[in-house]
Structure formats: C-alpha cells, structure tokens
Simulated assay, not measured.
Amino acid sequence: MDLLELTSELIRRRSITPDDAGCQALLAALLGQSGFRTEHMRFGDVDNLWARRGDAGPVVVFAGHTDVVPPGPREQWHSDPFEATVAEGTLYARGAADMKGSLAAMVRACQRFAAAYPEHPGSIGVLLTSDEEGPAEDGTVKVMEALKRRDELFDYCIVGEPSSGERLGDTVRVGRRGSLSGLLAIKGDLGHVAYPPRSENAIHALARFVQAMTAEPIDEGNARFPPTTFQMVNVTSDAGAPNVIPAELNCRFNLRYNTQWDRHTLAARVESTLDALGLDYELSWRLAGEPFLTTKGRLTEAVVRAVREETGIAAELSTGGGTSDGRFIAPYGIEVVEIGPVNSTIHKVNEEVLVADILALERIYFRIAELLLLE
C-alpha cells in the first residue's frame, strides 16, 4: 500500500468525531510491522493510539487525529466525500487536508525512517486521537496525563494540522492563542414594550456589554501574538410575544487571547466590565486551552530547514489560526510545531489537497526525523 493508497483507505473509513472507524488499527498494524510498540488507549468513547520505536532519548513524536467533521450537504459535493477522488493532481474528500493526508505521510515517514536507520539513536513515536474535532476531553489530553504518570513524556512534537496558507510549507505554527468561552445569563424585567422605563431589557443590557468590550482593543498583542479578540457566538432571548420585553437573555462569547493573559486574569477583566455596567448576571467559563509558544530552537530550526530543502520556501513561523491538540502537549515543556497541508478548504464542502503535497509532506516529516535524531 503506497502513500496515496493509504490516504485513500483512511478517507474511506467514515471516522466522524469521535468515531475512529478503524483508522488507528490500520495505522498501528503498519507501525507494528516497522518495529513500533503500539498501545491502544481508550478513554470514554474515544480511541487513542500511542506508538513508539526505541527506548532512549531524545524522543520525536508525530501527532494527529483520525476524526473528521461531518461532510455537510452531500448534494453539494461533486464526488463521494468518503471516497478519495483524484482529478488533475488534486485529491477531494472529507479529511483530505484535515488531516488524513498528514496521517498517511507521517506514518509512512516513520516506517521509512525505521527501515533506513534500524539502529537509530533516540526514539520516534506517533500519538493519535479520535477526539480533536469534538469536545477534546478524552483524547490527547488524557493520553498526555497517562504518559506523564508513567514518566514517558517526549521532547519534540510535530503536529500534522493543515498549517499552510497558499503553498505547502509557507507557514509553520509555533504556538496558538488561548481560547476561553463565557456562558452568560443576563437578568432583566418582564414588561410591556410600550413602557420601557418600567423594565430592564436584558437584550439592551447585552448591547451595553458588547459595546464596552469592543469600544477599545483588549490589548495590542505582542511580538509573537496578535491582539486578543472578543466575539459573540450565540444569543437567545424571547418573551414569547412581540410586545413583551424579555426578562432574561442567555448567550455565549469567545475570547482568543495571547500570552499577556491567562484564563484567570482574562476572566477577571470581563467580570470587571460586567460589574462596572451594573448588570444582574450569572457567568460560567469554559476553557479550551491556554496559549502556548515554542521559541526558536532545535525543533523550529529542523522544521524550517526540512521545508526549505524540500520546497525551496522560507517558512513563516506563526501563532495564528484556531486551537489544536498542541495545547495539551506544550504545557509539559515539550517543543511543539504544526506543519501540514494548505488549509483553505478544511471543514468545507469539496475539501481538497494536492497529491504532490502529500508526497512532499512525507519527505518533510522524514527529513525532520533525520535532523532531530541523527544530527
């Protein structure tokens, strides 16, 4: 099974989060053939795979996820989203870029590395989950906790998320912003719309809060991160009649924040704004992950060099984009980067990846392993 065939076989397995649909069993079998010790680690409804070849350090790990988002309206796809369709050098399917092409590339790179250097120094590993696109509660975060308990953490991690913007390798993620969501309930007074002074309108109260949060930037960002952002994502309020002021409003907002904050200081900033407005409210918080940053060092140098040698591109080191499972790995003091395909169609109908990029990505991953373990 060559690299394209492996990508196609992974796509054929309808692993809509959190269902792994047998992807990890397939990859574990391939890694086992190359001398990797494989361990299936299931937490709740989530399948995870930990594979390692070697017992010494340093330990280089490739990480990713086998789960994908739903394909959306089938009629809008020009081919079966769970059959890899190749046309004019482009592969179309759900998970093509996010991230089954990367998974196939990293596993084949690990196999090739093991074959080329059977007595290699250090260790090379693979960490996979089926819970990255979902709640992310029983996936990588639980595996890392288990590895920590048995003193089996690693040194370097390459996450196969689709990091590239226009061309493969033009962007390497070396960090991510934190993500903190607030679930806010604002209390008002039920009343007639013709007599607004007699009632406190919860919707108007929300408008004042949004205005206060967006009137000025929360911060100016820093050398490696953009400014913190505030976005409303859901609002519900209805008194059941067109002439009644609602007594309550429930909403959700999200903050993507840089390293000038942590969850506690940022929450305090928001709560002080609500208090200053004199609102009657209840607020709970949901943390998706704190910000992290991998500074320039051996890992970033190896990745940039591998990308340059394979593509001729000088990769930009970026902290943009959303969250990834890197947020569960970096807190253990592990250097983390993300390098993967172009991300312009991820989660969209007719998701695509260039076949040439999958092939090149396998060579980039192989070269990164060489640079980290052999030089």
Rank of each mutant, 00 (worst) to 15 (best):
V210P: 00
G139C: 11
T236E: 11
L374Y: 03
E335K: 14
L30T: 04
P18M: 09
E282C: 07
G175K: 10
F292G: 09
S272I: 03
L266K: 02
I16P: 09
T66W: 00
E5W: 00
L180V: 08
Q76I: 02
A97E: 00
R367T: 14
A84F: 01
R12Y: 15
Y92T: 14
D357V: 00
R224C: 12
K348R: 15
H65D: 10
K148W: 10
A146K: 08
E375Y: 04
A93V: 06
E375T: 11
A223K: 10
D170T: 08
H65P: 15
L359R: 07
L206P: 11
T66I: 07
A51E: 01
E220A: 14
I158Y: 02
A315Q: 01
E145W: 03
D262A: 08
E220T: 11
A29S: 14
R94T: 11
P135Q: 10
T66M: 10
I313D: 02
S284P: 01
D20H: 03
L3N: 06
L184G: 08
L359V: 14
T140V: 11
V61I: 10
A268C: 06
L372E: 01
M144A: 11
R94Q: 09
F43G: 06
P291W: 05
F62W: 11
I329Y: 13
A25Y: 02
A276L: 05
E335M: 06
R150G: 04
A93N: 01
G57Q: 02
C23F: 06
P331M: 14
H264T: 09
I368A: 03
D45I: 09
A202V: 06
A247S: 15
S199V: 10
L91F: 00
M41I: 13
M106I: 08
H204S: 12
F82Q: 12
D151F: 08
L27P: 06
T140I: 13
Q111K: 00
H192S: 07
D170C: 07
Y281C: 13
Q24F: 02
T265N: 11
E248L: 10
R308M: 05
R37I: 08
S181V: 02
L317F: 08
S324G: 10
F366E: 03
T265P: 05
F82W: 14
D80H: 07
A239F: 14
P331Q: 12
E248V: 13
L26W: 12
H120S: 13
A223D: 15
R94V: 06
K148V: 05
G175C: 04
L361E: 08
C157W: 03
N350S: 11
Y92K: 05
A247E: 15
T319S: 06
H65C: 12
V342M: 07
T17I: 07
G320P: 01
S15G: 15
Q111C: 14
A84V: 02
D131T: 03
R176H: 06
L266N: 00
G221Q: 00
L361H: 06
V141P: 01
R256E: 02
I16R: 05
G64Q: 12
V141N: 04
T228V: 07
A215P: 05
T311I: 04
A104M: 05
P73C: 02
R53L: 04
F62M: 15
T295G: 09
G72R: 08
V159H: 14
A241P: 01
L184N: 03
L183F: 14
R94P: 00
